[in-house]
Nucleic acid binder design. Structure first.
Lengths: 196, 196
DNA sequence: CCTACCGATCGGTAGG
DNA sequence: CCTACCGATCGGTAGG
């Protein structure tokens, strides 16, 4: 079975997320995106209704992928081990980033360019996502698995550390996505673990 | 002795770094900066030669502050404790961010908007700065203070975690800069520490 | 998917 | 620090 060709709309979004990652949304013009696809700027408007609409599609899909991966990670983990739960959440997060670093980077950095309403919706979803980490950290503190700390600070510390990967990851880099995930899981678990 | 009034040029840079932090460099117009200072857009050009020149001043000063703080932290720390050295580097880094989160945020996120030459110079300085962390991590691994890991990965992980503070820190937030520094030092040292 | 075009806004200059 | 203005570029539309 052949791999289905991505739709024109999807190819526009893929090219756009690469450019948005490199230069930022505001510094990327519609004509920059068109040039990368070898068409005229105005031609894109046969497929998209606005530049912000392209940004929204990328951000919304990235958010959905992070949510789905985290949900699956939590369902696959025993409820009684906060360490396992954090490890699974970290591995899922790293997987989403390395499978499409452009999309992930745009989600992390460019969602502020969205209009009021969409920005507010994404802020809520980001908060709900971060809550998974806060809750796992609080549970681990309660069970004695983790050192005592401020769960909100620790979750923000951890998540920004993970998100940094969206900036520096290169497919042709020194380490494979799996090896990077192993390192990130180790570092994350140690960040929280109590003295043994 | 009265506090010296900041120069007009400096006030422009301070307002600009706040706006660049909130919206990004590309999404902030010269007229946005002027409006925040209650003058006409063209009036700014009596004090600055270009928009990029303002960005450069902010980024260059931030870089110098990070470098000075890290240098002082290393000089004040015994050479034989990698743990103490990392703790001092982290505390210095957090101090630079909380003392001027706008400037720090622009340094972290907006340096890509600089022209080729300046961007390359900043990339070098960022690398030299990150090397302080890599070296301290490698020393701690060699002495047995730190768990075995990849120093480049661990340094990137740690520095992006620290830099996240530039995005979410608010002067009127729940925790004082000192308390945040305490948490960040604890989290950072645990991230690296070997099992006791 | 193209050519031709729109009004708005951009960074920046001239001249006072 | 202001008014007046510049050419270039922006996101987007009309009509084919």
């Amino acid at each position: 079975m052949a791999i289905e060709a991505p739709s024109r709309r999807r190819r526009i979004e893929d090219v756009a997320s690469g450019l948005f990652r490199e230069r930022g949304y505001a510094a990327t013009s519609v004509r920059d995106i068109a040039r990368a696809l070898d068409v005229q700027g105005a031609s894109l408007y046969a497929h998209v209704t606005s530049k912000e609409d392209v940004l929204w599609s990328i951000v919304d899909r990235a958010a959905a992928r992070f949510e789905a991966a985290a949900g699956a990670a939590e369902r696959a983990t025993a409820a009684d081990s906060a360490t396992d739960r954090i490890a699974a959440l970290v591995r899922a997060h790293v997987g989403v980033i390395t499978s499409d670093p452009g999309e992930a980077s745009v989600f992390v950095h460019e969602w502020r360019a969205l209009g009021r309403e969409r920005r507010a919706r994404i802020a809520d979803r980001r908060d709900a996502y971060e809550r998974r980490f806060r809750d796992a950290i609080a549970d681990g503190m309660a069970s004695g698995e983790f050192a005592l700390t401020d769960p909100a600070i620790a979750a923000a510390f951890l998540l920004t550390a993970l998100n940094g990967l969206a900036t520096w990851f290169r497919r042709d880099g020194r380490l494979t996505p799996d090896r990077i995930a192993d390192h990130f899981v180790d570092l994350s678990v140690r960040t929280l673990a109590g003295a043994t």
